[in-house]
Every structure is written in structure tokens, then in C-alpha cells.
Design a protein around this nucleic acid. Structure first.
Length: 221
DNA sequence: TGGCTTCTGCCGACTATGCC
DNA sequence: GGCATAGTCGGCAGAAGCCA
């Protein structure tokens, strides 16, 4: 292990590379240069237009969108390719998602794109850095993270083969956790139903509580 | 090369929404 | 209804492009 020199990371394996975010993949900022931005003449075409809200609502892959652009709208915006990892940099800082199709973005979103498997690894990496992004943001009426600050944030990257191994680990472990969450949620629902039924039966006289005594608690030494 | 125009990105402000 | 937060928009400053 070696010290990364980055406070929030601490020590990292010797072979991991430390680099600024801008060197991990091709970095692009969205745009929407037309004013006013809500000009109806630019919308309603065939090009998906994704706002920060669409990113925020997404767990991992962006597969739906609320607006589309026509040819004119497309010409004033910026299209990110399928597979781009996107991050919101205005208002709601540091929400991450992966684009599941080619789509256009406004300037409140930045994209990272690489042809290698690094896109998915980057997704998990950036996802874990939300607090870092927030702390790097400029605080005005609301938080804003500009491209210069974002691109200068340092990260530690393993070799591509190790990235794949880490991805496998994350997928396997999170699948196990998701299964457990589903199982316990079901149990919680059943307990809530039981509680409701119990209350109902008690207050309607279906249960005879005469002679009932509260359980005595064991004294913990 | 300097001045004008257009474009781009940053950031503050406004609006919508949700929660208490 | 009031407040907090989220989401989007508009204005402005600086950069880039264009032309004389």
C-alpha cells in the first residue's frame, strides 16, 4: 500500500494510478445555448433531451426521458454517446448515471466517456464521491460545481483487469444485499399487517386482554 | 490588430414540489 | 401556510470567431 495523498481515499495499493478526473476518460460538458431555454420551437423532435432531474431519478442506467429536441434544438445542444457516465453539476450536485442511448444534455450536466470498460467502473467510483463533489462546490443561492474544479479532483485507478474484478465483486455483493433487502421488506410488511390486525382486534374486543400482564424486561448487567 | 458579434459556461434567482 | 430543497432558467462576463 502507498499513501494516495488524497484525504478521502487514504492508502491505496502500490500499482494503482493517481490522476485527475479529466484524465480518466474524455470529459464533455452539455450545452443548451438558445435563449430563452424554454422556447417551444426547439422541442418535440426525435432527440432525447435529459435534464438533471432525469439523472437524479435514475438508479444506474438512464433509459427514460421527459423531453425531446427537434433538429433546431439538437443543433444548440450537445449529444453524449450511449455509455457516457453523466454527473449533475448544478443545484443537485454529484448525481451519477450511465446513458443507455445517445442523448442531449444541458450545461448543468458533465459526461465522461471511454471506449473501455472504465465507464461502468467510473460510475461506481463517481457514485462513491458525492460528498467530495459537494465539498468542492461553490456555495451561492445553491451549490454549483464548475468543470475546472470537477476535472481537477484526484482519483485512484487500478489496472483494467483489476477494474473488472472489482466490478464483479460489486455486482455479486450488491445482488446478495438486494436479495436480503427484499426478503426483510417482505417480513416488515407482514409484521405491519399483523400489528394493524392486532390493534383492530384489541379495540373491537376480539381479543380478551383481561388478565394480560406486560412481559418483564430482563435487567442487563 | 482592433473592434464588433456571437457563443459558452458560471452562478444567482425564480419556481415547483414536498414535508411538517 | 411556511419552510426547505430540488430543478430550471436567465443574465452576465469572458472567450472565441469574424471581418475590415
Amino acid at each position: 500500500m502507498k499513501p494516495s495523498g488524497i484525504e478521502w481515499i487514504g492508502d491505496v495499493p502500490e500499482e494503482w494510478q493517481l490522476m485527475k478526473l479529466k484524465f480518466t476518460a474524455k470529459m464533455m460538458r452539455g450545452k443548451f445555448s438558445h435563449r430563452p431555454r424554454n422556447d417551444a420551437r426547439l422541442y418535440g423532435g426525435e432527440y432525447p433531451f435529459i435534464q438533471t432531474g432525469d439523472v437524479t431519478k435514475t438508479e444506474k442506467y438512464i433509459s427514460t426521458y421527459s423531453q425531446t429536441l427537434n433538429e433546431w434544438g439538437y443543433s444548440v445542444s450537445k449529444e453524449f454517446p450511449c455509455g457516457t457516465v453523466v454527473i449533475t453539476i448544478s443545484a443537485n450536485i454529484g448525481d451519477i448515471a450511465i446513458l443507455n442511448f445517445n442523448g442531449c444534455f444541458p450545461d448543468s450536466v458533465v459526461g465522461f466517456f471511454s471506449n473501455s470498460n472504465i465507464n461502468e467502473y467510473l460510475f461506481y467510483l463517481l457514485k462513491s464521491m458525492k460528498n467530495v463533489f459537494i465539498s468542492e462546490s461553490i456555495e451561492g443561492t445553491q451549490l454549483n460545481l464548475n468543470v475546472e474544479r470537477l476535472s481537477s479532483i484526484k482519483v485512484a485507478l487500478p489496472e483494467p483487469m483489476e477494474q473488472l474484478a472489482i466490478l464483479d465483486f460489486i455486482k455479486t455483493e450488491t445482488a446478495t444485499i438486494d436479495t436480503l433487502i427484499t426478503k426483510y421488506q417482505k417480513q416488515i410488511e407482514l409484521m405491519q399487517e399483523y400489528r394493524t390486525a392486532l390493534i383492530s382486534q384489541a379495540v373491537t374486543g376480539k381479543i380478551d386482554v383481561r388478565g394480560w400482564q406486560p412481559k418483564t424486561k430482563e435487567v442487563v448487567k
